[in-house]
């Protein structure tokens, strides 16, 4: 039996290796072709994007579409809108991430350690709140902001978007961080308390450092989620004080003319920060998500 399996394994070793190489190649082609097309389009002129047959090799490519995002800075020019979109996106995503980590891990710590009644139900409520689609809340957001809360002048501000973004990944942060805190032995904390540290000190000095991988993972995930948001700026922040990069890319699509080359250039620039995050920290996101949610 054993002989037979080894012989069979040897006979099959070659073909399976080849199949694996073929499948991996296909996977790379499937991944890279659209990316290549996006970058290629961003280097073309408008006429080049509507020519048949399309040129699939970069001939006479120029950086004119990218230059457009930075040159001729004046009110309502493309570069002006790009600048504000980038600024708003950076501010909103960063502030949301920090808020989420502070508020979320504080709550997660309580839900992991305390004996408050109903803490499991509360965790479930947080997680369930995250499953609620944005679109089912966007109508009251709009109505409340322009009518009853109109005095606060929140409509069309980044502040409003930050408040709303924060709620959207809070449940996920709490859920993952609670998993982390559960996995840290309570004895560590008790040892610190015996040595005279207060609960706050032991939380900040002993527990938080151990939860850093979870913080990195959930923080990056929050950053990417808020970077990606489109429907909220669409409804609540259509002006330069609040609109973000996705909304900017969307508005580059003219009503009559699809300037694919400009859209592609804007798209490449908008994708750059998250792509860099993934290239450098992708591993942490995956390990953080699985470690927090799966009790090994």
């Amino acid at each position: 039996m054993n002989m037979m399996t080894t012989r069979r394994a040897r006979r099959h070793a070659q073909p399976t290796a080849i199949v694996r190489v073929i499948l991996l190649t296909l996977l790379l082609v499937w991944t890279l072709t659209p990316l290549y097309f996006l970058v290629l389009t961003s280097l073309k002129s408008y006429v080049g994007t509507i020519a048949y047959p399309q040129s699939w090799v970069p001939t006479g490519g120029s950086l004119a579409n990218y230059a457009l995002m930075f040159q001729n800075f004046s009110a309502d020019s493309v570069s002006y809108r790009f600048f504000y979109a980038m600024r708003n996106s950076l501010i909103a995503s960063t502030v949301t991430t920090i808020l989420n980590l502070v508020v979320g891990s504080a709550a997660a710590y309580v839900l992991a350690r305390s004996r408050i009644r109903g803490k499991n139900i509360l965790t479930m409520a947080f997680l369930a709140s995250n499953l609620l689609p944005t679109v089912s809340l966007i109508i009251p957001f709009y109505v409340l902001t322009v009518s009853y809360l109109g005095g606060l002048h929140l409509y069309d501000t980044n502040t409003l978007l930050i408040i709303l973004y924060t709620s959207f990944s809070l449940g996920l942060v709490i859920w993952i961080m609670r998993g982390y805190f559960d996995s840290i032995p309570i004895e560590l904390e008790e040892a610190a308390r015996v040595d005279g540290a207060s609960r706050m000190i032991s939380l900040l000095r002993v527990i938080m450092p151990l939860a850093v991988p979870g913080l990195i993972a959930t923080g990056l995930l929050t950053f990417l989620t808020s970077w990606d948001n489109f429907i909220l700026p669409l409804v609540l922040g259509p002006d330069q004080s609040a609109y973000n990069l996705p909304f900017f890319i969307y508005s580059l699509n003219g009503q009559y003319l699809h300037l694919n080359n400009e859209v592609a250039a804007g798209g490449v620039l908008a994708a750059l920060p998250p792509v860099l995050i993934i290239l450098f920290f992708g591993k942490y996101i995956v390990s953080g998500l699985t470690a927090g949610s799966v009790k090994g």
Binding site: T31, L224, D228, P246, I278, L279, G282
Partner: peptide, 15 residues
């Protein structure tokens, strides 16, 4: 292989 996941949805949609 991980890059596509980082592309913002609107960019992915226009692409």
């Amino acid at each position: 292989i991980f890059i596509p996941w980082a592309i913002p949805t609107v960019v992915n949609a226009t692409l």
